[in-house]
């Protein structure tokens, strides 16, 4: 059989209505990340509008928030902007820096306390927040699933920032990324995403 014929056969097979391909999975809605190279690899071409995303980083300061700064700026600048909450961050979100990346500081909310998972779930569920960042190291699968469900209900995006060890655990997050800074570049491994293959990419990330 010639190569062309084989190709045609494959095409015909792919047209079969009973065949479902992961790549066609509908992503309900995405926000552009503001970083072109990232848009190209993410399912749907951007950050999901709702759901749960996990970012695994070896340490604070790898760019785990700088990745999101354009989205925070965009969402807090909307006319009817909802809140963007930080649950149990290991530092204080620094207002002047957020302001200089274009975010509206009066839409940022910091939540601390002994029950970060509960607080994050409440934030996602309430509908008052559009984006909730949570720094929670240990989470049971059940808690992850609760967070994912809450994000769906509250039309919010939850971003969990966890250490690299968490890669070995299963997760209910619809998108998982691992950050590995190498030199002045940021290497980003896409671990899990609807309809995309795990892959690795390098990118430059502005400081703020």
């Amino acid at each position: 059989m010639s190569g062309a014929a084989r190709h045609a056969g494959l095409e015909a097979l792919l047209q079969h209505p009973a065949l479902w391909r992961g790549g066609n999975a509908a992503v309900p809605g995405v926000h552009p990340t503001g970083i072109g190279a990232l848009d190209a690899v993410l399912p749907g071409g951007g950050w999901p509008c709702r759901g749960l995303v996990e970012v695994l980083a070896p340490a604070s300061g790898c760019g785990e928030l700088r990745l999101w700064a354009p989205l925070v700026a965009r969402l807090t600048r909307l006319p009817a902007a909802r809140w963007c909450a930080f649950v149990a961050p290991p530092f204080e979100p620094y207002a002047p820096a957020w302001q200089s990346c274009g975010a509206r500081v009066d839409r940022l909310l910091v939540i601390r306390g002994r029950q970060p998972a509960w607080a994050m779930e409440q934030g996602l569920l309430s509908g008052a927040c559009t984006l909730v960042f949570g720094w929670i190291e240990r989470l049971a699968m059940q808690e992850l699933r609760r967070l994912a469900l809450a994000a769906g209900k509250g039309d919010a995006l939850g971003v969990l920032i966890r250490p690299l060890d968490a890669e070995r655990e299963h997760s209910a997050a619809q998108l998982r990324l691992a950050l590995e800074p190498s030199g002045s570049k940021l290497a980003l491994r896409l671990l899990k995403g609807r309809g995309v293959m795990p892959q690795r990419m390098h990118m430059d990330l502005a400081l703020s």
Binding site: P93, A95, P96, W98, Q99, V105, D106, L108, L109, V110, I111, R112, G113, R114, Q115, W118, A119, Q122, G123, S126, G127, A128, C129
Partner: peptide, 19 residues
């Protein structure tokens, strides 16, 4: 949402930022 957080986590647990 804030009321429930304040009730459970305490008054100082939730705050906003201002430059």
């Amino acid at each position: 949402f804030l009321q429930i957080l304040l009730a459970r986590l305490g008054d100082r647990a939730v705050y906003g930022l201002a430059p």
